[in-house]
């Protein structure tokens, strides 16, 4: 997290994919992207109260001719499931970048159940799941996943592994 290089590459990949709206529920692993989105006059950054709002935001953006990406952490995936019927029914793209918790050096046991369920739940709901484990792969993974989502008009999630973002360290 101290070296934002790969996150910079991810933001550049979103820009190259012509994403102009970013909705997010904050996560430390997304902090660089959130800051970059707010600092970018050509990006509309929308803070959400819950992740499912982001699926509806993305649908509205697409109806209006824009491309949206949603940032969330793995615990938020569980908040999204019924709303995922929206892009599937409407043959709309949906792109989300998910920072993983509960899988690599996790301190907080409350993160583990949803972390373990994230990929199978997304798959069951009809979302195509890709995963980035190494910093050098992240930007390319996002670029390819954005193309898949927006050109094929399908929902795609990119999981940023906890090993990639760095396990959160709690100190007494």
């Amino acid at each position: 997290m101290n070296n934002p290089t790969w996150q910079e590459g991810v933001y550049a990949a979103l820009k190259a994919a012509r994403v102009t709206q970013i909705g997010y529920v904050p996560d430390a692993g997304h902090a660089h992207l959130i800051t970059a989105a707010h600092a970018d006059p050509d990006m509309k950054a929308v803070v959400l109260t819950t992740e499912e709002e982001g699926i509806a935001l993305s649908a509205g953006a697409w109806l209006g001719g824009e491309r949206c990406a949603i940032l969330m952490q793995s615990s938020g995936v569980g908040n999204c499931i019924n709303m995922l019927s929206l892009p599937l029914n409407c043959r709309m793209p949906f792109l989300t970048l998910v920072t993983m918790r509960g899988e690599w050096g996790e301190f907080n046991p409350w993160q583990v159940p949803m972390g373990a369920a994230t990929q199978p739940v997304l798959t069951a709901a009809g979302v195509h799941v890709r995963r980035a484990d190494r910093p050098e792969d992240a930007a390319e993974m996002v670029g390819a996943s954005a193309a898949l989502a927006f050109d094929s008009q399908i929902p795609v999630a990119v999981l940023f592994s906890q090993r990639l973002i760095g396990a959160k360290v709690f100190v007494k």
Partner: peptide
Amino acid sequence: NFYLWGAMGGTGMIGLGLALAQ
């Protein structure tokens, strides 16, 4: 007119994404 037949709770947010885009 964009009619929802599901996605309960999402109508306002679809409106927001659309408003930002247009």
